[in-house]
Computed example of a mutant assay.
Amino acid sequence: MEKNETDEQIRETGSLDLGSETGRHRIRLLTIIGEIEGHETVSGNTKATKYEHLLPMLAEIEDSDQIDGLLILLNTLGGDIEAGLSIAEMIASLSKPTVSLVLGGSHSIGGPLAVSAKYSFIVPSGTMIIHPVRSSGMFIGVAQSLRNMIRTQDRITRFLSEHSRMTQKRIEELMLNPKELVKDVGTMLEGPEAVREGLIDEVGGLSNALHKLHEMIEKEHQKKCKNM
């Protein structure tokens, strides 16, 4: 890929292809930074990850013979729930090796995004915040609205438990904890705590994440060779 094309790819989608110049495994690097933007555009001053950019890219990764694996870097405060879940489901459905790395934090709907990869890392200073679903805009005070919020919350906790080593019951306990966050309900887990709770697989940095991904890709190649 030419330098101008690479610069444009980074600027528009926050992604980059690794390994093509060195002859190593070909890895797509994807960054999920700032607010997860859904159907409504966020403020022009807010850094955002647009789900309409990510979904086609994830489809390309799955279909391309030129991409061996996916590395996801996360530093997000959350955002649109439906958009975040759709991205997380897409990542989880990829057949290729995937590794995520939480840097500053992966809060709220960033949680499902972090655990959607087949293996997850978090830096020691990284944080995960688990909290109940919040209403944005006007809330209609009827029973149906409450039931919808509870069902949405259940979708999130179920996804987290299915893609980590935590039970749904434990996730709900942390989500409804009234003592951890000042003037709020929920729990903040720092890197080692997130691993001890079973939400994230391992504490580590970029070199650890890349090493693990190359290892997973190599095992996948060996498996395919045996089946040929």
Rank of each mutant, 00 (worst) to 15 (best):
G191E: 09
P124D: 02
G104W: 12
K118E: 06
S43T: 08
S86E: 13
G111K: 05
C225K: 10
E82T: 15
E52Y: 10
E173C: 09
E5G: 08
V142C: 07
R155T: 03
T187Y: 10
A83V: 11
D154P: 08
M138T: 15
S64I: 00
M90Y: 13
N227P: 10
E60R: 11
S136A: 15
L199A: 04
L55F: 06
H214W: 09
N75P: 10
A114I: 02
M175S: 08
Q66L: 12
T157S: 12
L181G: 07
M149Q: 13
E37W: 05
K224V: 00
K179W: 12
V42A: 11
I130V: 14
L70P: 02
D68S: 01
P178F: 07
I150Q: 13
E60I: 10
S116K: 06
L30R: 04
V142Y: 07
P112H: 00
Q9E: 14
R147G: 05
E220W: 02
G198C: 01
R24D: 12
A83I: 13
I36V: 06
D65E: 12
G205L: 04
H39T: 13
S136T: 15
G23C: 06
N4D: 15
K223E: 11
L146A: 14
R158K: 15
S145P: 07
R147N: 10
I81M: 09
R158I: 03
